[in-house]
């Protein structure tokens, strides 16, 4: 393994780690959303079905940024596109 390849690999690994910082946003956002959903269900238990459904869809939308980060990280680690 020459020096250039090593640098690329190290960069890919660091990049993957940085990409996963994207997980912070969805984590906070979804936690907030679930907390609000819990409050909503506590206030109006009969609407729990609709609240849960909406919450999951919202979580899924919020999660997509995290998923993009995950995809980038996976590509960097396993496919090493720059080597």
């Amino acid at each position: 393994m020459d020096m250039g390849e090593a640098i690329i690999l190290a960069g890919s690994a660091i990049g993957a780690g940085l990409a996963m910082i994207a997980g912070i946003g969805p984590g906070i956002g979804e936690g907030y959303a679930v907390g609000k959903a819990c409050e909503a269900i506590a206030r109006q238990p009969e609407a729990s079905g609709a609240v849960t459904r909406t919450m999951f869809v919202g979580c899924a939308v919020a999660e997509s940024t995290g998923i993009y980060g995950l995809i980038i990280a996976l590509l960097l680690i396993f496919l090493k596109p720059f080597t």
Binding site: L75, F78, L79, K80, F82
Partner: peptide
């Protein structure tokens, strides 16, 4: 692009994100 080139060469698998 860049992604597919290596994998195409490796074997008859499509790239991960294709």
């Amino acid at each position: 692009g860049i992604i597919s080139a290596s994998v195409w060469a490796a074997d008859l698998n499509l790239p991960f994100l294709s």
